[in-house]
């Protein structure tokens, strides 16, 4: 690893020492020259990167750089936005997600999502987790499956006595873990996380980060985060996005650099990446 080189940027950002060694794993998803449009506006331009199996990939960058937009293009959540359109190719095990006969519902059953703001359904804790199973037609061993998902999200011990009470009565951090439990209950292959800790305090954030380490053994995770230390702590690969003006003076998000997290944080290949992670970003 490049951690031992004399030019070690991680020492400039306390707590940002990359901890997850990247290992080469087969790609589950592949983005080829992906651009996302809202109406006529091109929010993100030409993104090419790979999402590797059972690894955590972090998308970082300043506000408005299109990292969330790219994330939402991975399970066709952008379909729900009026006028949103994806150009280029997103493949999942080699299958084009935007091919004409692909059912977005089937896509989302395999590629789950956790949102920025914890958004449990206004139902009981049990019902929240069981919901995804029910809509997928799973009816047997419901109690076991719910317990498994809650254990998987490191929430079981805190809620096992009150499964019937509302998911909204939990704390913010617990709600977010409930949302993760809800997502993993349907056993997706990939979990997309859109700034899952931005509404949480440091302790709750720590719990979610630990959880992500545990989940990475079973799931492929893509996380969008504002927090560079978080990206350094949890991810194997990091993609740095930024927003730039084009010739016509219109802002577009662009992927600047995509590499192993260790490399991005210790020896970035691009000046803009270095500026951003050392805090010299304008």
């Amino acid at each position: 690893m490049t951690m031992s080189t004399d030019f070690n940027l991680s020492t400039l950002i306390p707590g940002a020492a990359p901890t997850m060694p990247a290992v080469s794993a087969p790609p589950v998803m592949q983005l080829e020259n992906v651009s996302v449009f809202y109406g006529n506006y091109e929010a993100v331009r030409g993104t090419t990167m790979a999402i590797r199996e059972h690894q955590i990939t972090a998308l970082i960058g300043p506000s408005g750089c299109g990292k969330s937009t790219v994330l939402r293009s991975l399970n066709r959540m952008n379909d729900l936005v009026n006028g949103a359109r994806v150009a280029g190719k997103v493949t999942f095990h080699g299958q084009d997600l935007y091919a004409a006969d692909v059912d977005p519902i089937q896509v989302r059953r395999r590629i789950g999502m956790v949102f920025q703001k914890p958004n449990p359904f206004p139902k009981s804790i049990y019902e929240n987790v069981a919901y995804g199973l029910k809509i997928n037609g799973i009816k047997d061993n419901m109690d076991d499956r719910v317990e498994q998902a809650l254990r998987g999200a490191a929430l079981w011990d805190e809620v096992k006595g009150k499964l019937k009470s509302s998911g909204l009565a939990l704390s913010g951090g617990q709600q977010q873990r409930l949302c993760i439990a809800r997502a993993i209950a349907v056993k997706p292959e990939v979990i997309l996380m859109d700034e899952p800790c931005s509404a949480l305090d440091p302790i709750a954030t720590g719990k979610i980060e630990d959880l992500m380490h545990d989940l990475a053994g079973t799931y492929t995770i893509v996380i969008v985060t504002h927090n560079m230390q978080q990206a350094a702590r949890v991810s194997h690969h990091t993609a740095f996005f930024t927003a730039e003006l084009d010739e016509a003076g219109v802002r577009h998000g662009r992927l600047v650099e995509f590499n192993d997290t260790g490399r991005i944080f210790t020896n970035p290949g691009d000046k803009r990446t270095e500026d951003y992670i050392t805090g010299r970003f304008g």
Binding site: N119, G132, I135, N136, V186
Partner: peptide, 23 residues
């Protein structure tokens, strides 16, 4: 957010409407 959460679990719009939005 509730509709999106439901959609992200692979629920069709009608299912989302009946099980999440109407209640």
């Amino acid at each position: 957010e509730l509709r999106q959460a439901s959609a992200a679990l692979g629920a069709r719009r009608w299912k989302t409407t009946v099980s999440v939005v109407l209640p």
